[in-house]
Design a protein around this nucleic acid. Structure first.
Lengths: 206, 206
DNA sequence: GTCTATATCATGATAGAC
DNA sequence: GTCTATCATGATATAGAC
Protein backbone atom coordinates (compact mmCIF):
# COMPACT_ATOMS: atom_id res chain seq x y z
CA UNK A 1 0.00 0.00 0.00
CA UNK A 2 1.09 3.50 -0.77
CA UNK A 3 1.95 5.59 2.27
CA UNK A 4 0.63 8.79 0.74
CA UNK A 5 -2.65 7.11 -0.15
CA UNK A 6 -3.17 5.81 3.36
CA UNK A 7 -2.54 9.15 4.97
CA UNK A 8 -4.78 11.07 2.59
CA UNK A 9 -7.64 8.62 2.89
CA UNK A 10 -7.36 8.80 6.64
CA UNK A 11 -7.35 12.60 6.56
CA UNK A 12 -10.46 12.63 4.39
CA UNK A 13 -12.28 10.23 6.69
CA UNK A 14 -11.38 12.29 9.72
CA UNK A 15 -12.49 15.53 8.07
CA UNK A 16 -15.67 13.95 6.73
CA UNK A 17 -16.57 12.61 10.14
CA UNK A 18 -16.14 16.02 11.69
CA UNK A 19 -18.20 17.80 9.02
CA UNK A 20 -20.93 15.19 8.70
CA UNK A 21 -21.39 15.00 12.47
CA UNK A 22 -21.87 18.77 12.64
CA UNK A 23 -23.88 19.35 9.47
CA UNK A 24 -25.47 16.02 8.58
CA UNK A 25 -25.69 14.55 5.08
CA UNK A 26 -27.64 17.39 3.50
CA UNK A 27 -25.89 20.24 5.32
CA UNK A 28 -22.35 19.02 4.69
CA UNK A 29 -20.39 20.32 1.69
CA UNK A 30 -17.70 18.43 -0.15
CA UNK A 31 -15.71 21.66 -0.32
CA UNK A 32 -15.74 21.96 3.45
CA UNK A 33 -14.57 18.38 3.86
CA UNK A 34 -11.75 18.99 1.39
CA UNK A 35 -10.75 22.19 3.19
CA UNK A 36 -10.72 20.53 6.58
CA UNK A 37 -8.61 17.70 5.15
CA UNK A 38 -6.24 20.25 3.65
CA UNK A 39 -6.62 18.88 0.12
CA UNK A 40 -8.51 19.49 -3.09
CA UNK A 41 -12.18 18.83 -3.64
CA UNK A 42 -11.53 16.57 -6.61
CA UNK A 43 -9.34 14.35 -4.50
CA UNK A 44 -12.21 13.53 -2.21
CA UNK A 45 -14.09 12.18 -5.21
CA UNK A 46 -11.02 10.28 -6.30
CA UNK A 47 -11.01 8.29 -3.06
CA UNK A 48 -14.75 8.04 -2.48
CA UNK A 49 -16.63 8.19 -5.75
CA UNK A 50 -19.58 10.14 -4.37
CA UNK A 51 -20.79 12.07 -1.36
CA UNK A 52 -23.28 9.29 -0.73
CA UNK A 53 -20.53 6.66 -0.52
CA UNK A 54 -18.42 8.83 1.77
CA UNK A 55 -21.38 9.45 4.02
CA UNK A 56 -22.19 5.75 4.23
CA UNK A 57 -18.62 5.04 5.31
CA UNK A 58 -18.85 7.60 8.12
CA UNK A 59 -22.37 6.61 9.11
CA UNK A 60 -21.40 2.96 9.43
CA UNK A 61 -18.41 3.89 11.52
CA UNK A 62 -20.43 6.06 13.89
CA UNK A 63 -23.24 3.54 14.27
CA UNK A 64 -20.95 0.66 15.13
CA UNK A 65 -19.24 2.93 17.63
CA UNK A 66 -22.46 4.28 19.11
CA UNK A 67 -23.91 0.81 19.60
CA UNK A 68 -21.51 -0.30 22.30
CA UNK A 69 -21.64 -3.82 23.56
CA UNK A 70 -24.64 -3.06 25.75
CA UNK A 71 -26.09 -6.48 25.22
CA UNK A 72 -22.81 -8.11 26.28
CA UNK A 73 -22.90 -6.25 29.58
CA UNK A 74 -26.52 -7.18 30.09
CA UNK A 75 -25.86 -10.83 29.37
CA UNK A 76 -22.86 -11.08 31.68
CA UNK A 77 -22.92 -12.91 35.01
CA UNK A 78 -23.47 -9.85 37.21
CA UNK A 79 -26.79 -9.18 38.91
CA UNK A 80 -29.29 -6.95 37.16
CA UNK A 81 -28.51 -3.84 39.19
CA UNK A 82 -24.81 -4.06 38.48
CA UNK A 83 -25.53 -4.58 34.80
CA UNK A 84 -27.75 -1.53 34.60
CA UNK A 85 -25.19 0.59 36.40
CA UNK A 86 -22.49 -0.57 34.00
CA UNK A 87 -24.67 0.20 31.00
CA UNK A 88 -25.37 3.71 32.24
CA UNK A 89 -21.68 4.37 32.87
CA UNK A 90 -20.82 3.04 29.43
CA UNK A 91 -23.46 5.12 27.67
CA UNK A 92 -22.83 8.39 29.45
CA UNK A 93 -19.09 7.90 29.11
CA UNK A 94 -19.32 7.60 25.34
CA UNK A 95 -21.74 10.50 25.04
CA UNK A 96 -19.55 12.82 27.11
CA UNK A 97 -16.63 12.17 24.79
CA UNK A 98 -18.58 12.28 21.52
CA UNK A 99 -21.39 14.67 22.12
CA UNK A 100 -22.23 15.20 18.45
CA UNK A 101 -23.28 11.59 17.95
CA UNK A 102 -26.84 11.70 19.34
CA UNK A 103 -27.78 14.81 17.41
CA UNK A 104 -26.29 13.38 14.25
CA UNK A 105 -28.13 10.08 14.62
CA UNK A 106 -31.45 11.78 15.39
CA UNK A 107 -31.03 13.91 12.29
CA UNK A 108 -30.15 11.10 9.92
CA UNK A 109 -32.55 8.51 11.29
CA UNK A 110 -35.48 10.81 10.76
CA UNK A 111 -34.21 11.57 7.26
CA UNK A 112 -33.55 8.05 6.09
CA UNK A 113 -33.27 5.14 8.53
CA UNK A 114 -32.46 2.54 5.87
CA UNK A 115 -28.72 2.96 6.45
CA UNK A 116 -29.13 2.06 10.11
CA UNK A 117 -31.32 -0.91 9.27
CA UNK A 118 -28.72 -2.38 6.94
CA UNK A 119 -25.99 -2.08 9.54
CA UNK A 120 -28.06 -3.51 12.37
CA UNK A 121 -29.17 -6.38 10.16
CA UNK A 122 -25.55 -7.04 9.25
CA UNK A 123 -24.40 -7.12 12.86
CA UNK A 124 -27.41 -9.18 13.85
CA UNK A 125 -28.29 -7.21 16.97
CA UNK A 126 -31.12 -8.95 18.76
CA UNK A 127 -32.88 -7.60 21.87
CA UNK A 128 -34.76 -10.79 22.75
CA UNK A 129 -32.10 -12.34 25.03
CA UNK A 130 -31.79 -9.05 26.94
CA UNK A 131 -35.55 -8.86 27.36
CA UNK A 132 -35.60 -12.46 28.54
CA UNK A 133 -32.84 -11.87 31.09
CA UNK A 134 -34.65 -8.87 32.55
CA UNK A 135 -37.93 -10.78 32.66
CA UNK A 136 -36.24 -13.56 34.61
CA UNK A 137 -35.04 -11.11 37.27
CA UNK A 138 -38.57 -9.79 37.58
CA UNK A 139 -40.07 -13.24 37.92
CA UNK A 140 -37.56 -14.04 40.63
CA UNK A 141 -38.71 -10.99 42.57
CA UNK A 142 -35.55 -8.92 42.55
CA UNK A 143 -37.03 -5.97 40.67
CA UNK A 144 -40.56 -4.75 40.09
CA UNK A 145 -42.72 -6.21 37.35
CA UNK A 146 -43.00 -4.15 34.18
CA UNK A 147 -42.62 -4.60 30.43
CA UNK A 148 -38.84 -5.03 29.96
CA UNK A 149 -39.01 -3.10 26.71
CA UNK A 150 -40.31 -0.05 28.51
CA UNK A 151 -37.58 -0.38 31.12
CA UNK A 152 -34.92 -0.54 28.42
CA UNK A 153 -36.40 2.43 26.58
CA UNK A 154 -36.61 4.40 29.83
CA UNK A 155 -32.95 3.85 30.60
CA UNK A 156 -31.72 4.68 27.10
CA UNK A 157 -34.01 7.72 26.92
CA UNK A 158 -32.66 9.23 30.13
CA UNK A 159 -29.08 8.59 29.01
CA UNK A 160 -29.28 9.83 25.44
CA UNK A 161 -31.97 12.51 25.24
CA UNK A 162 -30.24 15.21 27.32
CA UNK A 163 -27.28 15.01 24.96
CA UNK A 164 -29.42 15.00 21.83
CA UNK A 165 -31.42 17.97 23.14
CA UNK A 166 -28.40 19.70 24.62
CA UNK A 167 -29.12 23.12 23.05
CA UNK A 168 -32.54 23.22 24.74
CA UNK A 169 -31.22 22.00 28.06
CA UNK A 170 -28.50 24.61 27.95
CA UNK A 171 -30.72 27.51 26.97
CA UNK A 172 -33.79 26.76 29.05
CA UNK A 173 -32.15 25.18 32.05
CA UNK A 174 -28.88 27.06 32.37
CA UNK A 175 -29.33 30.51 30.80
CA UNK A 176 -27.16 29.37 27.87
CA UNK A 177 -24.17 28.68 30.10
CA UNK A 178 -22.14 25.87 28.45
CA UNK A 179 -19.99 25.19 31.52
CA UNK A 180 -22.96 24.65 33.81
CA UNK A 181 -24.58 22.45 31.16
CA UNK A 182 -21.47 20.33 30.78
CA UNK A 183 -21.31 19.88 34.56
CA UNK A 184 -24.97 18.88 34.61
CA UNK A 185 -24.38 16.24 31.94
CA UNK A 186 -21.33 14.91 33.74
CA UNK A 187 -23.41 14.40 36.89
CA UNK A 188 -26.00 12.36 35.06
CA UNK A 189 -24.37 8.94 35.34
CA UNK A 190 -24.47 9.07 39.15
CA UNK A 191 -27.92 10.64 39.28
CA UNK A 192 -29.38 8.11 36.87
CA UNK A 193 -27.98 5.11 38.65
CA UNK A 194 -29.58 6.20 41.92
CA UNK A 195 -32.86 7.14 40.23
CA UNK A 196 -33.30 3.92 38.31
CA UNK A 197 -32.25 1.63 41.13
CA UNK A 198 -34.71 3.40 43.43
CA UNK A 199 -37.41 3.00 40.79
CA UNK A 200 -37.09 -0.73 40.26
CA UNK A 201 -35.65 -2.49 43.31
CA UNK A 202 -38.10 -4.16 45.63
CA UNK A 203 -37.34 -3.01 49.16
CA UNK A 204 -37.17 -5.82 51.73
CA UNK A 205 -39.19 -5.24 54.86
CA UNK A 206 -36.89 -5.22 57.87
CA UNK B 1 -58.77 41.14 2.78
CA UNK B 2 -58.92 39.18 -0.42
CA UNK B 3 -60.54 35.76 -0.15
CA UNK B 4 -58.24 34.20 -2.73
CA UNK B 5 -55.20 35.48 -0.92
CA UNK B 6 -56.27 34.02 2.40
CA UNK B 7 -56.93 30.59 0.98
CA UNK B 8 -53.69 30.42 -0.95
CA UNK B 9 -51.59 31.59 1.96
CA UNK B 10 -53.24 29.00 4.16
CA UNK B 11 -52.62 26.26 1.60
CA UNK B 12 -48.95 27.23 1.39
CA UNK B 13 -48.54 27.20 5.16
CA UNK B 14 -50.18 23.80 5.41
CA UNK B 15 -48.02 22.35 2.63
CA UNK B 16 -44.87 23.97 4.03
CA UNK B 17 -45.55 22.53 7.47
CA UNK B 18 -45.97 19.06 6.06
CA UNK B 19 -42.81 19.23 3.95
CA UNK B 20 -40.62 20.96 6.52
CA UNK B 21 -41.65 18.54 9.26
CA UNK B 22 -40.70 15.59 7.08
CA UNK B 23 -37.56 16.96 5.42
CA UNK B 24 -36.30 19.77 7.64
CA UNK B 25 -35.00 23.12 6.44
CA UNK B 26 -32.19 21.79 4.26
CA UNK B 27 -34.03 18.76 2.92
CA UNK B 28 -37.21 20.60 1.95
CA UNK B 29 -37.64 21.93 -1.60
CA UNK B 30 -39.70 24.94 -2.56
CA UNK B 31 -40.92 22.98 -5.59
CA UNK B 32 -42.27 20.23 -3.35
CA UNK B 33 -44.06 22.75 -1.17
CA UNK B 34 -45.62 24.37 -4.25
CA UNK B 35 -46.68 20.98 -5.61
CA UNK B 36 -48.25 19.94 -2.32
CA UNK B 37 -50.09 23.26 -2.18
CA UNK B 38 -51.25 22.74 -5.77
CA UNK B 39 -49.82 26.04 -6.97
CA UNK B 40 -46.81 27.48 -8.72
CA UNK B 41 -43.36 27.80 -7.22
CA UNK B 42 -43.19 31.52 -7.92
CA UNK B 43 -46.33 32.06 -5.93
CA UNK B 44 -44.71 30.71 -2.80
CA UNK B 45 -42.06 33.39 -3.15
CA UNK B 46 -44.76 35.96 -3.76
CA UNK B 47 -46.31 35.27 -0.35
CA UNK B 48 -43.18 34.51 1.63
CA UNK B 49 -40.19 36.28 0.14
CA UNK B 50 -37.70 33.51 0.88
CA UNK B 51 -37.43 29.93 2.01
CA UNK B 52 -35.84 31.20 5.22
CA UNK B 53 -38.85 33.37 6.04
CA UNK B 54 -41.31 30.60 5.27
CA UNK B 55 -39.36 28.22 7.46
CA UNK B 56 -39.30 30.68 10.34
CA UNK B 57 -43.07 31.01 10.14
CA UNK B 58 -43.49 27.24 10.37
CA UNK B 59 -40.82 26.79 13.01
CA UNK B 60 -42.38 29.40 15.26
CA UNK B 61 -45.76 27.78 14.86
CA UNK B 62 -44.47 24.32 15.74
CA UNK B 63 -42.44 25.53 18.71
CA UNK B 64 -45.28 27.41 20.32
CA UNK B 65 -47.41 24.33 19.80
CA UNK B 66 -44.82 21.87 21.09
CA UNK B 67 -44.19 23.88 24.23
CA UNK B 68 -47.55 23.31 25.85
CA UNK B 69 -48.36 24.99 29.08
CA UNK B 70 -46.31 22.53 31.08
CA UNK B 71 -45.28 25.17 33.54
CA UNK B 72 -48.92 26.13 34.13
CA UNK B 73 -49.76 22.57 35.09
CA UNK B 74 -46.74 22.40 37.37
CA UNK B 75 -47.65 25.65 39.08
CA UNK B 76 -51.29 24.74 39.67
CA UNK B 77 -52.70 23.85 43.10
CA UNK B 78 -52.55 20.07 42.71
CA UNK B 79 -50.02 17.97 44.60
CA UNK B 80 -46.75 17.11 42.89
CA UNK B 81 -47.76 13.59 41.87
CA UNK B 82 -50.93 14.78 40.17
CA UNK B 83 -49.01 17.49 38.41
CA UNK B 84 -46.44 15.05 37.06
CA UNK B 85 -49.15 12.70 35.88
CA UNK B 86 -50.90 15.54 34.09
CA UNK B 87 -47.69 16.65 32.43
CA UNK B 88 -47.00 13.13 31.17
CA UNK B 89 -50.52 12.78 29.80
CA UNK B 90 -50.25 16.17 28.10
CA UNK B 91 -46.87 15.42 26.55
CA UNK B 92 -47.62 11.92 25.30
CA UNK B 93 -51.00 13.08 24.03
CA UNK B 94 -49.46 15.76 21.85
CA UNK B 95 -46.70 13.47 20.63
CA UNK B 96 -49.11 10.70 19.63
CA UNK B 97 -51.02 13.13 17.46
CA UNK B 98 -48.04 14.95 15.98
CA UNK B 99 -45.32 12.37 15.81
CA UNK B 100 -43.11 14.30 13.38
CA UNK B 101 -42.50 17.13 15.83
CA UNK B 102 -39.75 15.61 18.00
CA UNK B 103 -37.69 14.47 15.04
CA UNK B 104 -38.08 17.84 13.37
CA UNK B 105 -37.06 19.75 16.48
CA UNK B 106 -34.05 17.51 17.14
CA UNK B 107 -32.93 18.04 13.57
CA UNK B 108 -33.31 21.81 13.54
CA UNK B 109 -32.03 22.46 17.04
CA UNK B 110 -28.80 20.70 16.29
CA UNK B 111 -28.51 22.64 13.04
CA UNK B 112 -29.24 26.11 14.34
CA UNK B 113 -30.86 26.66 17.75
CA UNK B 114 -31.02 30.45 17.44
CA UNK B 115 -34.59 30.32 16.15
CA UNK B 116 -35.70 28.50 19.27
CA UNK B 117 -33.82 30.90 21.49
CA UNK B 118 -35.58 33.91 20.02
CA UNK B 119 -39.00 32.36 20.50
CA UNK B 120 -38.36 31.23 24.06
CA UNK B 121 -36.95 34.63 24.92
CA UNK B 122 -40.03 36.25 23.42
CA UNK B 123 -42.41 34.08 25.43
CA UNK B 124 -40.30 34.49 28.54
CA UNK B 125 -40.34 30.88 29.57
CA UNK B 126 -38.64 30.53 32.94
CA UNK B 127 -37.97 27.21 34.71
CA UNK B 128 -37.04 28.66 38.09
CA UNK B 129 -40.54 28.67 39.63
CA UNK B 130 -41.05 25.06 38.60
CA UNK B 131 -37.73 24.07 40.10
CA UNK B 132 -38.63 25.92 43.29
CA UNK B 133 -42.01 24.20 43.55
CA UNK B 134 -40.45 20.77 43.17
CA UNK B 135 -37.75 21.60 45.72
CA UNK B 136 -40.43 22.59 48.22
CA UNK B 137 -42.16 19.21 47.87
CA UNK B 138 -38.84 17.53 48.47
CA UNK B 139 -38.10 19.59 51.56
CA UNK B 140 -41.52 18.73 52.94
CA UNK B 141 -40.71 15.05 52.56
CA UNK B 142 -43.31 14.02 50.04
CA UNK B 143 -40.83 12.90 47.39
CA UNK B 144 -37.20 11.85 47.49
CA UNK B 145 -34.43 14.42 47.49
CA UNK B 146 -32.69 14.98 44.16
CA UNK B 147 -31.73 17.86 41.88
CA UNK B 148 -35.09 19.06 40.49
CA UNK B 149 -33.46 19.77 37.14
CA UNK B 150 -32.48 16.14 36.78
CA UNK B 151 -35.97 15.06 37.69
CA UNK B 152 -37.46 17.35 35.04
CA UNK B 153 -34.99 16.19 32.41
CA UNK B 154 -35.70 12.55 33.31
CA UNK B 155 -39.42 12.99 32.82
CA UNK B 156 -39.15 14.88 29.55
CA UNK B 157 -36.52 12.44 28.26
CA UNK B 158 -38.73 9.41 28.84
CA UNK B 159 -41.70 11.15 27.21
CA UNK B 160 -40.02 12.57 24.13
CA UNK B 161 -37.09 10.34 23.23
CA UNK B 162 -39.01 7.23 22.15
CA UNK B 163 -40.91 9.39 19.65
CA UNK B 164 -37.79 11.15 18.41
CA UNK B 165 -36.01 7.81 18.02
CA UNK B 166 -39.07 6.00 16.72
CA UNK B 167 -37.32 4.44 13.70
CA UNK B 168 -34.79 2.75 15.98
CA UNK B 169 -37.40 1.63 18.49
CA UNK B 170 -39.48 0.18 15.67
CA UNK B 171 -36.65 -1.61 13.91
CA UNK B 172 -34.71 -2.92 16.90
CA UNK B 173 -37.58 -3.50 19.31
CA UNK B 174 -40.39 -4.60 17.06
CA UNK B 175 -38.88 -6.16 13.92
CA UNK B 176 -39.97 -3.06 11.97
CA UNK B 177 -43.65 -3.58 12.77
CA UNK B 178 -45.31 -0.14 12.83
CA UNK B 179 -48.52 -1.36 14.49
CA UNK B 180 -46.71 -2.93 17.43
CA UNK B 181 -44.57 0.21 17.76
CA UNK B 182 -47.61 2.47 17.78
CA UNK B 183 -49.19 0.33 20.48
CA UNK B 184 -46.01 0.49 22.52
CA UNK B 185 -45.96 4.29 22.32
CA UNK B 186 -49.63 4.52 23.26
CA UNK B 187 -48.94 2.51 26.40
CA UNK B 188 -46.20 4.82 27.52
CA UNK B 189 -48.30 7.38 29.36
CA UNK B 190 -49.59 4.75 31.80
CA UNK B 191 -46.24 2.99 32.12
CA UNK B 192 -44.38 6.23 32.76
CA UNK B 193 -46.77 7.46 35.40
CA UNK B 194 -46.33 4.24 37.39
CA UNK B 195 -42.58 4.20 36.87
CA UNK B 196 -41.93 7.77 37.94
CA UNK B 197 -44.27 7.73 40.91
CA UNK B 198 -42.60 4.55 42.12
CA UNK B 199 -39.21 6.18 41.66
CA UNK B 200 -39.86 9.32 43.68
CA UNK B 201 -42.55 8.80 46.30
CA UNK B 202 -41.42 8.14 49.84
CA UNK B 203 -43.22 5.07 51.12
CA UNK B 204 -44.71 5.52 54.58
CA UNK B 205 -43.96 2.74 57.06
CA UNK B 206 -47.18 1.05 58.16
C1' DG C 1 -2.03 10.90 -6.56
C1' DT C 2 -2.90 15.56 -6.88
C1' DC C 3 -4.17 19.59 -8.96
C1' DT C 4 -7.00 23.19 -12.19
C1' DA C 5 -10.65 23.77 -15.03
C1' DT C 6 -15.04 22.60 -16.48
C1' DA C 7 -19.34 20.03 -17.29
C1' DT C 8 -23.74 19.25 -15.50
C1' DC C 9 -27.44 19.86 -12.87
C1' DA C 10 -30.62 21.38 -9.15
C1' DT C 11 -32.38 24.98 -6.56
C1' DG C 12 -33.83 29.54 -4.75
C1' DA C 13 -35.25 33.61 -6.52
C1' DT C 14 -36.92 37.17 -9.93
C1' DA C 15 -38.96 39.42 -14.31
C1' DG C 16 -42.63 40.18 -16.83
C1' DA C 17 -46.98 38.76 -19.31
C1' DC C 18 -51.81 38.14 -18.28
C1' DG D 1 -52.73 37.06 -7.78
C1' DT D 2 -51.10 33.73 -10.75
C1' DC D 3 -48.56 31.93 -14.27
C1' DT D 4 -44.25 30.84 -17.66
C1' DA D 5 -39.73 31.61 -18.53
C1' DT D 6 -35.36 32.66 -17.01
C1' DC D 7 -31.47 33.99 -14.13
C1' DA D 8 -27.85 33.31 -10.77
C1' DT D 9 -25.75 30.56 -7.71
C1' DG D 10 -23.63 26.85 -5.78
C1' DA D 11 -23.03 21.98 -5.51
C1' DT D 12 -21.60 17.28 -7.16
C1' DA D 13 -18.93 15.17 -10.21
C1' DT D 14 -15.58 14.49 -14.05
C1' DA D 15 -11.69 15.45 -17.61
C1' DG D 16 -7.29 16.03 -18.32
C1' DA D 17 -2.63 18.09 -17.32
C1' DC D 18 1.27 17.25 -14.34
Amino acid sequence: MNQKSDKTEEKILEAAKSVFLKKGMEGARMQEIADEAGINKALVHYYFRSKEKLFTAIFTNVITYAFPKISKILLSDSDIITKIEQVIDAYIGVLLKHSYIPGFLMKELNRDPSGLFKIIAKYGFNPEPVIGAIQKEMDEGRIIQMDPRHLIVNIISMCVFPFAARPIVQYVGFRDDPVATQHFLEERAEVLKKFIVNAIVIKQKE
